[in-house]
Design a protein around this nucleic acid. Structure first.
Lengths: 359, 359
DNA sequence: GTGAAAGCGCTAACAT
DNA sequence: ATGTTAGCGCTTTCAC
């Protein structure tokens, strides 16, 4: 057992000072009923004077609840994650929980074990922003019966609750917007295969093409990895084709930044010679020159909702299989315009769109 | 007491299965000596089969250590913080700790209490990236005798250990660089007064001016708040003066972004008509058009070092008053050049400078 | 090398 | 409205 920390104030000290039992003190500090008003006052006063702070571990051991929620992320890199974290911290705070931030790193075997370890009694619930190889994580998590919520991912393999955006609809709308501007050859840069949302966005792109009666050309679709550099590479390939696209859709903003860099390098004017769009609407996208047209994904709200769902689970609700899909919205800025050689062609019907410079 | 979770594997289960006492199991799992090799093997095998994960709260209660470190931040907003968080998570992970992310919010009275509460037994050590009104926090923290480390702040009022960058030197070097380019009227946008580093950076600016034999003009120095918008406002004021500066130093990158926006709005070419520099070197600064010249502050490393220092304190070292100052370095990109009307003037001695496009 | 007993600080359950 | 008892799951101490 540990050496007694003589400085630290305990429940028993308050009990002694106030002339009541520990139990009464406990009741007072937990705002429970059945305590006489003046007893309560006295206890509170003493607790305050002594500067008492409850001992989290002891309480956790006794109640079986840590009042902590774990957020598991692959690595801390992008603003994308920052938005989610903001939402998560705000909501955990509001609901009286604390956030444990866990990076799963590069997901080697021992790191899985590490995360498993953490889940043992450390947190009451888990939020997952999935790393590359999601499957093993999902299996691991579904084995534990901790309330767990997946953020921004789609999986048919596990039955865990999820919070995500309307990826398909958002991308469909954006593709439709480009088509309405007059674009007919639209390049597309995919994200990472296994993450589910990648596929959804591609579907949206395909549906919008089909709707307009356009063919789907494999050659216009490139594989990216959500990093700026892959956007740079993929767009180079696309733009050096015999018949290059007049618009390029990157399936996240970071890759769109890469496309912008390529366009800059090739001396292409944006949007006169090339339209570019992203997905996410991270803060930087508004600061780009020119500011990036993109699909806003409500990452902050997704973070908040995920926490709510997890807490619901912690409090006993059955959340298994629950899926929450939040709407996206187009943010039309300045990287999109009429296709080159089409400057005179009429625009038929632009959807009602709101400009958003929320930086 | 809580209802017994029948599913969860306990130490006692392993003890039963392996035919030893709990104590032996405990020893094995904590890698302690004095256990026969085959006993150890057997225990490990059983633990593995049963999928045992230790109960964090119980262990914490018993040892008096939670193996968690709290990171207190005002609010999750900027990339600035993201870099620090990256460093902190990487190092906590490496040292076998977990990170609890605590937002102090807008620092009203009850939120102070909230944070105090959290410090009671929840974490073994605390890292502080200070919110606006730092003083009360500092007092609060120094009252508790938890190992605490302050990141990117300077204070003479408390004796807590600190990790920060060489703000004065960095800013001095940058100002000197502008002077060497030929700039004589250099505007300066300050950060938030009370945070200490703000003052240091201003000192660097002043020293470089004095060194060059220039006067310090109050009118060239404006009050900002580290947000882009204040950079926009302050630079407007500066540029509308009778004799506007030919260069503007923003004491962080976000404000420099605001200055760039203003320059853009006024139709000023960068850097031909106005040189702009920032401080921090957050990832976005490399993506600006043109890419921002700035002072690199090793935020990631500061996060790591802060963790190391806190852990040293947790392990019993005396860290009070320890101060670690990490070097900065100039990152010369494309927002700086010769002052207007000075295009023909020779540049005397440019310091050896490395270009950094680390995006 | 191993085990038994005691206790970390708190709260649930059952008194009164 | 308040107190007593027992125990959360683990580790420390001390005995063997």
């Amino acid at each position: 057992m540990s050496k007694v920390n003589s400085r630290k104030i305990r429940l028993s000290h308050i009990a002694d000072q106030a002339g009541v039992s520990m139990m009464t003190v406990s009741r007072v500090l937990n705002n429970q009923a059945h305590v006489k008003v003046d007893t309560r006052q006295r206890v509170l006063r003493v607790a305050n004077e002594l500067g008492y702070t409850p001992h989290a571990s002891a309480r956790a051991l006794s109640t079986g609840k840590t009042r902590m929620i774990g957020l598991v992320v692959g690595s801390i890199t992008s603003e994308y994650l920052l938005e989610i974290i903001r939402g998560v911290t705000d909501e955990t705070r509001q609901l009286g929980y604390n956030l444990v931030l866990i990076t799963s790193g590069h997901n080697r075997e021992d790191e899985l074990t590490q995360v498993t370890y953490l889940m043992g009694g450390l947190v009451d619930g888990i939020l997952l922003v999935l790393p590359r190889e999601a499957d093993r994580f999902l299996k691991l998590v579904s084995n534990h019966n901790l309330p767990s919520v997946i953020i921004d991912h789609r999986s048919n393999e596990v039955n865990l609750p999820m919070v995500r955006a309307a990826n398909r609809e958002g991308m469909k709308e954006m593709t439709r917007f480009l088509i309405q501007l007059g674009h007919q050859r639209i390049g597309y840069i995919k994200g990472i295969q296994g993450d589910g949302t990648c596929h959804e966005r591609l579907l949206g792109y395909q549906e919008a093409l089909a709707e307009a009666g356009f063919s789907y050309f494999e050659e216009l679709v490139r594989q990216g990895d959500y990093e700026a550099y892959s956007g740079e590479i993929s767009s180079s390939e696309l733009l050096l084709m015999n018949e290059p696209p007049t618009a390029i859709i990157a399936s996240n903003d970071q890759m769109a930044f890469g496309v912008m860099a390529t366009a800059h390098r090739l001396g292409l004017h944006i949007p006169e010679q090339l339209s570019i769009v992203g997905f996410d609407n991270i803060p930087s996208s508004a600061r780009m020159v020119p500011p990036l047209t993109t699909v806003h994904q409500p990452l902050y709200d997704m973070g908040r909702e995920a926490v709510r769902m997890a807490v619901a689970g912690i409090e006993g609700e059955a959340i298994t299989g629950r899926v929450m899909v939040l709407p996206t919205r187009l943010v039309i800025r300045s990287t999109t315009g009429l296709p080159r050689d089409k400057k005179t062609q009429p625009i038929y019907s632009l959807p009602a769109i709101q400009e958003g410079m929320e930086s």
